[in-house]
Nucleic acid binder design. Structure first.
Lengths: 341, 341
DNA sequence: CTGAAAGCGCTTACAG
DNA sequence: CTGAAAGCGCTTACAG
């Protein structure tokens, strides 16, 4: 320890810097001064070895194809660093096997806990340390998530209020709990007398070939006026396909999505979307983790998944296409601040 | 050390597991067996304390608004973990001040080196450990980057081959080296007799208000037939605005971008784009870092930024709008594999 | 071929 | 109020 040599004391420095033990104010000041004069940075390795805690968390993410990744990763990193924790990332790109491997890499690095957004259909096993799962409330062992079902209700209520009756709900993969919740919520709010057809893109592409058109123009001809996708990504695909077919949006059809991605407000027309409160979700996940980590320290009891019941965080509608097809909108919609590039 | 108690030896285990020292093959086998029977994971903290290396790298990224973030972060993480290193992320969201703070957080965590994608106009100072900068070849101290200039030439050559003569080049911020390189490359290949106008979105919005239309239809009326943006993000904005104005793409105008984002191939019409080879860039950055880290270990000489000259990695054109406006295409374009959701 | 010893830089009781 | 001592779990020379 550098400060030792330069002053009088030994590991009083540790106490001084940590505010532990009773040290005279004057000495503390002198030590502090010396410390940042020398640019002293305590060795985290030594500290970790001694205390048994690295103050590093792991973040395991499914493949990047989900463009929500940056939002949530940023939120997690922010929440963690606000609590003095670092975040080690581990992309489980590819397979479920890679997810397991990613987790092992984190364990080898002695993370104090792990936040995981699991791959589809993965059941996370006991990991020997605290774990917070972010997925959907329908996923067993999920710790926290957006209330995707309620989010689905929000879009559908909004579209119904604009006078729509004939919906196409667009999803990618029926095996996804998140997507099913969103679509379930939408269906639960289809207005009386209205109809909603579900289009699963993956199935469509298996039948018609990769990246083939979704044939949405045909749906419009058969009466559909509103397209609600489980992601802005699919909403964008729908929007451009409609536009390209000469169908005016929102003139002849409305398009809505989920997640309020970076470009959703920038395109023409801007997409109506539903967004999750990533900051709150991250905060809850991190808090749950830290709480379990402390419990681990105190008694060695509380291991494994953080909490049995999922906390659901409400989602928010961002209404950007407020012109109805059949009916003029009668109530003012909430409009959020714009999103620059 | 657990294995000790269960066998006969002491810290021979260390040597056995590491393959150092000369241990009998038989003993090594027995130790290995015991080790994974007990699920033994060596303490990285203790090892770091002893060896002086954490085998963790830091990754500092500018604000998420750049949708290239996931691609590059994934590539870095992949390259690092392939070399046995972990990656601690630090989002420098917000200001330059936060970037400095992010770097400090990483230093406190004892990373062996840092990969940074610096914020606009930031000059990175000496950090006391190896540093790799990913930016543009025009940025001083940049270690590795895509050859944005050449990428610009690729799009322009492609558009010119389709018969275009009248271009609108769309950028966001003229202070960005990356954007300037891309636009510079484009301008350098405008065909003889052709003309190119530059539209800087940030300036446009300062003049006309946030998220205001880019008035591209007017440009088409005045003869523009090709819109080339420095990012697929802006290309998307242009595309939707044109389509919304009833201008057929690619019938009456072509739209091209950069970075080949996840959705670029999925929209209608798909965007022609130029992509960087993120895997190679990440590999070069990581290799440079590891090399400097080893040098650090051997002699304490080579500190600071990894290499004086920037390595430029060529970009690749992904041609998806191959129909010319004035001329039918005469040469076959390269078409890449499609990009599923 | 294998073991005993020292030490990486901290923190945490425990004496003074 | 401050210091001396032990120990976290490894690895690395160095003896046997």
């Amino acid at each position: 320890m550098i400060a030792t040599a330069l002053n009088v004391s030994a590991a009083t420095v540790s106490n001084a810097l940590a505010g532990k033990g009773r040290i005279s104010a004057e000495l503390i000041d002198r030590i502090r001064a010396k410390a940042d004069e020398l640019g002293y940075v305590p060795s985290s390795a030594a500290r970790a070895l001694r205390t048994g805690h690295t103050r590093v968390l792991g973040l395991v993410l499914p493949d990047i194809s989900n463009p929500l990744f940056p939002q949530i990763a940023q939120a997690i990193e922010y929440a963690a660093s606000a609590s003095g924790y670092g975040v080690l990332i581990a992309d489980s790109r590819g397979s479920v096997a890679m997810q397991t491997e990613a987790i092992n890499r984190l364990i080898e690095r002695d993370v104090d806990g792990i936040v995981i957004i699991p791959r589809l259909g993965t059941r996370i096993v006991d990991i020997g340390r605290p774990l917070a799962v972010i997925d959907s409330p329908s996923t067993p062992n999920s710790t926290v998530s957006a209330d995707h079902w309620q989010g689905g209700q929000l879009v559908m209520e909004h579209l119904a209020a604009l006078g729509h009756q004939n919906f196409v709900l667009i999803g990618n993969n029926p095996a996804s709990n998140v997507q099913n919740d969103r679509i379930g919520g939408m269906k639960s709010r289809v207005p009386a007398g209205g109809k909603a057809e579900i289009l699963w893109i993956e199935q469509h592409e298996q039948a018609h070939g990769k990246a083939s058109p979704l044939r949405l123009a045909e749906k419009v001809e058969r009466g559909a006026t509103a397209f609600a996708a489980v992601s802005d990504l699919h909403a964008l695909r729908a929007l451009t396909e409609l536009q390209n077919a000469g169908i005016a949006v929102p003139g002849r059809a409305s398009v809505a999505g989920f997640d309020d991605l970076a470009w959703s407000a920038m395109i023409t027309p801007a997409l109506t979307s539903v967004r999750m409160d990533v900051a709150t979700i991250a905060r809850i996940a991190i808090d749950a983790l830290l709480c379990a980590i402390e419990a681990d320290t105190a008694a060695d009891a509380t291991r494994g998944v953080v909490s049995a019941e999922t906390t659901s965080v409400p989602m928010t509608l961002v209404a950007r296409q407020t012109t109805g097809v059949l009916t003029a909108p009668t109530h003012p919609e909430k409009t959020p601040a714009g999103e620059p590039a």
